[in-house]
């Protein structure tokens, strides 16, 4: 994989639920948004194989992507962004209520086997979703005006098919306006 296709997010120390510091672990790989989009438009199956990661047996596959772009529209539960480095291809950043494990599993940072049980691992999903809802989404909604330039990183389930709307719908874990 070419160096420009992936990057590494910063690698903060991870703290176990017990409070014991687990030390630094390898940074997760994320894919650059234009690369994933290009691959998706060419061949969704091949794109998933190359850029997504799976959780468990038969589990959902996720993309963890980072990119930049400009806001083209805002709605009740999403902000649509035209991605830099593409031919105006649009992705959505979800701003509505967040459910499920998209961020927990989508980053690839967290492993069920490092937690006491599924209940604790599931509770983590709810807590992460609340963090995104309280820390990431409010400033994103506040500053998202049409034409605003931003950098983003987010997670999403691999889509079943590419429809007429945005090619990806990310749960943003980071959004910074330039």
């Amino acid at each position: 994989m070419a160096a420009d296709e992936v990057g590494r997010v910063s690698d903060p120390p991870i703290v176990h639920p017990t409070g014991e510091k687990a030390g630094r672990r390898p940074a997760p790989l994320f894919a650059a948004a234009p690369i994933v989009i290009s691959a998706l438009l060419r061949d969704p199956g091949a794109a998933a194989k190359q850029h997504a990661h799976h959780v468990g047996i038969g589990g959902t596959a996720y993309y963890f992507v980072r990119g930049a772009g400009r806001v083209v529209s805002t709605g009740k539960n999403e902000i649509v962004v035209a991605v830099d480095g593409t031919d105006g291809v649009q992705i959505a950043l979800r701003t509505g209520p967040l459910f499920g494990n998209t961020v927990r599993d989508g980053t690839g940072l967290l492993n069920v086997n490092e937690f006491p049980g599924l209940a604790e691992f599931n509770a983590l999903s709810a807590a992460i979703n609340r963090l995104v809802e309280t820390r990431v989404l409010p400033p994103l909604r506040e500053h998202a005006v049409v034409g605003a330039a931003l950098e983003f990183a987010g997670c999403t389930e691999v889509p079943d098919a590419i429809g007429a709307g945005p090619v990806l719908s990310l749960v943003p874990v980071s959004a910074e306006f330039r």
Binding site: V55, G56, I57, G58, G59, T60, V112, N113, L118
Partner: peptide
């Protein structure tokens, strides 16, 4: 073996 393996 992974201790826990979730199945979709």
């Amino acid at each position: 073996f992974p201790h826990r393996t979730p199945v979709a």
